[in-house]
Simulated scan of single mutants.
Amino acid sequence: MKVTISKQCMGDRNCNDLCPEVFKYDEDKLVSTIQIDPIPEHLKALVRQAAAECGADAITIEE
Rank of each mutant, 00 (worst) to 15 (best):
L46A: 03
A51Q: 04
L46E: 08
P20E: 01
Q49L: 13
K44M: 12
E53Q: 11
A45N: 06
F23L: 05
P20F: 03
T4W: 00
T33Y: 06
G55D: 07
K24I: 11
V47I: 01
C19V: 14
K29S: 11
E62R: 09
V31P: 02
T33F: 02
C19Y: 06
V3Q: 07
L18G: 01
E27S: 14
G11Q: 08
A52Q: 08
F23C: 06
M1V: 05
I59C: 02
L46S: 07
E27L: 10
T60L: 12
Q35L: 15
M1T: 05
S6W: 03
A58Y: 07
S32L: 04
A52H: 01
Q8H: 13
G11M: 08
E27D: 14
T60D: 10
T4D: 09
A52G: 01
N16P: 02
T33E: 15
Q35G: 15
I5E: 05
D37W: 02
T4Y: 03
E62A: 13
I39Q: 12
D12T: 00
L43T: 04
L46Q: 11
D17Q: 09
Q49T: 13
D37Y: 00
I61D: 04
M1C: 04
A52N: 05
A52D: 07
E63K: 05
C19Q: 10
L18Y: 06
K7F: 02
D28S: 15
L30M: 15
E53K: 08
L46D: 13
Y25A: 03
N14A: 08
V3L: 07
E63F: 02
P20H: 04
Y25T: 04
D57K: 14
A45E: 14
P38E: 08
A52F: 03
C9F: 00
C19A: 15
C15V: 04
C54N: 07
S32C: 06
G11P: 07
P20W: 02
K2I: 10
K29H: 12
G55M: 10
C9E: 00
E53A: 10
Q8F: 10
R13S: 09
D37E: 14
P20V: 06
C15G: 06
M10Y: 02
E41G: 01
Q35R: 15
C54L: 07
K44L: 12
I36L: 14
P40L: 10
L30F: 12
E62C: 03
I39Y: 12
L46N: 06
K2M: 04
I61R: 00
E53I: 05
P38S: 06
K24M: 05
R48H: 00
P20L: 01
P38K: 09
V47Q: 01
I34E: 11
